[in-house]
């Protein structure tokens, strides 16, 4: 079992509540915009504190309101790929990739760059990248931080069809070759059906 999540959080007038248990592979959180999918990811990552509930990944408890466990964001080792790549604008691609590197890791920076098809971009500045390139760098940065699981928030948003295909292939390879549990947020039915072993409707 990889993700074991049951969380509840009031945001303004609405209450985001979500619970699911999944096996390995890619799990998709599917639903319309504004349903609170991103909030669920943020709660798993530790960026948003649930009012109540429990978050465990791979058997390790990251948050449990009953027993008072709340592992800080920095220690959760979530590889979070945001909807807006959130590359650091004052660092070159290479430094962005290396920002979270720790320990042995899944792969070296050069391997990751090769795997993601961004090896030719290492000395560029983030503002000079296209949307698809930036998104692949963001995926690389998350992978190189030696994560225990990946959180992907609509990583295909704003990409044209050809770029979407590039990034989709990368995600499929991650799912099949790297073997990390992935929690994937999307509102696109076709995308979700292509990628996910488990689909959770939010």
């Amino acid at each position: 079992m990889s993700f074991d999540v049951a969380v509840e959080r009031r945001l303004g007038d609405t209450v985001v509540a979500c619970g699911f248990q999944t096996g390995g592979g890619l799990t998709a959180l599917f639903g319309p915009s504004g349903a609170g999918k991103t909030s669920v990811l943020n709660m798993v990552a530790g960026l948003l504190k649930p009012d109540a509930g429990r978050v465990a990944v791979g058997g390790e408890v990251l948050f449990d309101s009953a027993s008072g466990v709340d592992v800080p964001v920095q220690a959760r080792r979530a590889g979070y790929v945001f909807q807006d790549a959130r590359l650091f604008p004052h660092l070159r691609v290479r430094a962005n990739l290396a920002y979270g590197m720790r320990g042995e890791g899944l792969m070296t920076l050069e391997d990751a760059a090769q795997f993601l098809g961004i090896a030719h971009l290492l000395d560029r500045w983030p503002r000079s990248l296209s949307g698809g390139e930036a998104q692949r760098v963001a995926i690389g940065r998350a992978l190189l931080s030696n994560p225990r699981f990946l959180l992907m928030d609509e990583p295909l948003t704003g990409l044209d069809r050809a770029r979407r295909e590039d990034v989709l292939r990368v995600i499929e390879r991650l799912r099949d070759e790297v073997g990390l549990p992935i929690l994937y947020v999307s509102h696109d039915r076709a995308e979700v059906e292509r990628l996910a072993a488990t689909i959770i409707e939010v």
Binding site: A45, G46, L47, V73, Q74, A75, R76, R77, A78, G79, Y80, F82, D84, R86, F88, P89, Y99, G100, R102, R141, A142, S145
Partner: peptide, 15 residues
């Protein structure tokens, strides 16, 4: 300074 960048850095393990 974009707080979302700081959140991203924290998920990457930065204190």
């Amino acid at each position: 300074v974009d707080l979302r960048l700081e959140a991203a850095a924290m998920t990457l393990g930065a204190s």
